[in-house]
Structure formats: structure tokens, C-alpha cells
Amino acid sequence: MIRTMSRGMRRLLLSGLLLAAQLLCGNARAADAQDVFAHPLTPAQMSTLLGPAAKPLAAAPGLRGRFEQRKTLPDLPRPLLSTGEFLFARDLGVWWHTRTPFDSVFILTREGARSRDEGGAETRINADEQPGVAVAARIFFALFALDFEALSKDFDTYGVPTGTSKSTGWQVGLRPKLAAMSAVFREAVIDGTQHANRIELRDAHGDRTEILLPEVSILTDGLSAADRQRFAN
């Protein structure tokens, strides 16, 4: 459906989505991102904070939804925007389909990462053979699974509840323990409820990547054959 829309329409829709996402995460936004790092959490505290909220996800085979990524670079006046859809399957990996500004599929499995472009040419990202860089893939994985136990091995963890009396929101901060990792990012802030809604990665050189995950649904049944096919080589 989106394909048939004019470019302007798509832009409009996207900004609408973005707005909706920002409203959704209003509470998280309200909490100053700097603040979260004032609240270190032990892994046990972390599971108390997230446990009840993440319970449905923990039992589910995966997640699917839309994403919007905004990358802010120093000296760049406007952030770089990309949107698309994603599928996270606990047993397979992350399928990340960027639709704008160009069509590209990024697939991350436990075996490694690869990219497929519109033309169909597939590139294996050979970083997974680098012992240090491979960490990034693992962390990406853990972010979607909300596997904070796995994350707490690679990161110092921080967190605050952001929920109102009705919803159970939370904000978590991560700082890499690993020098190899901090080259890629210095810290991460994740806002969520039942799953991550917003992920912000900041690095030491003024790069900032914000990923919004609106319209996320937790999969209740197993993956369809078509969905499984997305991960096939």
C-alpha cells in the first residue's frame, strides 16, 4: 500500500507516525535522558523493574512492527531518516527491512549479519569474523529480546520506572564495559513498556542514532512459513 503512495504522502505519514511515537513515549521523553545514568541497577533490580512489563514478551516467539531511525551526525543540519518494518524472531534473529529512503534488508542471525539490496545482491558483513565487532550483533539481538541479563554482561546498567499508575513504563541506560564496544557507542538509552519503544545510541563523536518502534505487536503464535522464509539465505 505504501508503495502506491506518492513520496509526499509517505513523508506525511511518516511524520505522523513519528509524532504518534513521540506521544506514545511521552513519559520517557519527559524523563531527562541524562538522569537515567544517575540510577545504577543490579541485574536483580533490573529484572524487578522490567520483569512485570516484559512478561508477555518473554513468553512470545517474537515481535514485529515498524521502525523509524533518525541518525544525527555532527555538522549535519538535518538528521538522516529511514523507515521500514522489522521482525524479531527469538529463534532466528532480526529481519530489518528498510523501505525509505531506499529498499534494503538487513538480516542479523546468530551466525552473522548480511544485507540485501533492492537489486538482490547480498553482502555478507564480514565484521562478524572480528571478535570485537561481533559484540554489536549480540547486543542488537538482546535489545529486541529484552534480555537484560545478557546485556548486563556487556554493560553497566541503569534504570528508572517511568510509568504512570496505569501503564508500566521504564527507561534503561546502558554503558559498555568493553573498550571494543565503546568505539561503536558510548551509551544507550532504551524506553519501553512491554517491549522497547525507543532506543537511542550515542557515541563519543557526536553521532546519535534514535530508533523508534511504533506499532509493535508481540507475536502470540509461531512464525508463519513466509516469515521464516525471510531469514533463509
Partner: peptide, 12 residues
Amino acid sequence: YTPAGFMRPFNA
């Protein structure tokens, strides 16, 4: 524009 960038040892 995609997570492929996170798999790099140097950022943009």
C-alpha cells in the same frame, strides 16, 4: 540508514 552501520568498528 540501516543497522549495518553498527557492525563497523568506526562510526560514521
